[in-house]
Amino acid sequence: MRSGVVVFPGSNCDRDLETAISSQSFDTCQMLWHKETTLPNNLDILFIPGGFSFGDYLRCGAIAASSPIMKSILKFAQNGGYIVGICNGFQILTEAGLLEGTLLRNSKLNFICKQQSVVVTNNGSIITKNFSNGEILHLPIAHHDGNYFADDDTLNKIEGNGQVLFRYADNPNGSKNNIAGIMSENHRVIGLMPHPERAVNEVLGSSDGSKIFKSLFENI
């Protein structure tokens, strides 16, 4: 199993992600600088980490979404590669057009950093397959712009297709339909605001995140 983590200036969850990935039985986890124009061969899964890429200038994720590595990431997605974006990674994937909707400023304008109960809504994806629908996970959230928004037509479409993977048990940020994580229509591109890589050990307050990585790795 070969994985990669894309690193942008301002990424700050890349090392946590690498640690979480390495604790699973992944053979390699390569850190990929955003100026690369090609991806390693035979990559099974690509992670876009959280953080504040390019200082969140212009819009969260907008500048990262047009960085040099994105062309090969788009090609990787077209060829059916698995991509998981967490927090800023989710924002980058929406800005790149790989996931529908966008993430607006939190409805109460505050930065939220806390443990959050998240409900598994559809266990039909590699990231949720090890859970049952309705199962509650405890994962940290840490964002200023996590308020998921899509127009009504798009919302109806992603709901109808079962593309919503995670919902907040109590909506902290104003997200439409309590959405915390979604996947693309072909199930290959996944984005979520909560941070599973920050919840891989009980010492950190929860180890539910490691179940998420386990699910990814067992079901690819």
């Binding site: 819009r59 907008a62 500048i63 047009s66 800005e95 966008t102 928004f149 899509a150």
Partner: peptide
């Protein structure tokens, strides 16, 4: 269209 504006919002 390519960078400055997110036409979703």
């Amino acid at each position: 269209n390519t960078l400055l504006v997110n036409k979703v919002i």
